[in-house]
């Protein structure tokens, strides 16, 4: 059980097995593949990313005709005002970069406050 002080007062306290309270982003696993964004039924996830050519020989190697690029994640947001906690994003992520985190998302004074960025999502449930 997580009796953490970030839980919205009065909200049910999820336990580790069943808690659909919030979702944590493990950024180093995310490849910006867009699958979660496209699978989300409520369109609550956004990804901003760009591609960079890999440095030196990894990117431009004489044995390859095409340059190799890698996606770099610039921003990842979940709008908790839209999320219905279905977990399809977690299920579909091929790299396990999303996982359930214990406590419920706190309320906010306005809708903008319910859009959590990648830093907030990385810490979901950790305090």
């Amino acid at each position: 059980m997580n009796n953490d002080d970030r839980t919205t007062p009065g909200a049910p306290t999820p336990d580790a097995a069943t808690g659909h309270g919030s979702i944590r982003l493990i950024e180093e696993r995310c490849t910006s593949c867009m699958i979660c964004v496209r699978e989300c039924p409520t369109w609550c996830i956004t990804i901003e990313a760009h591609s960079e050519v890999l440095p030196d020989e990894q990117g431009h190697h004489p044995s390859r005709q095409r340059v190799r690029t890698v996606h770099v994640l610039d921003e990842f947001t979940i709008d908790w005002a839209l999320c219905m906690y279905c977990g399809i994003c977690i299920e579909e992520c091929p790299f396990d970069a999303l996982e359930w985190a214990g406590p419920h998302v706190l309320g906010a004074a306005d809708l903008v406050g319910l859009v959590h960025d990648r830093h907030a999502l990385a810490e979901a449930g950790s305090r």
Binding site: V37, R38, R66
Partner: peptide, 21 residues
């Protein structure tokens, strides 16, 4: 649709196929 974005848009690898939601 947030899924319309493609991180490869700025490169030669950009997908020609547009996905619909």
């Amino acid at each position: 649709w947030p899924g319309a974005k493609d991180p490869d848009d700025d490169t030669a690898q950009a997908s020609r196929r547009r996905t619909l939601p």
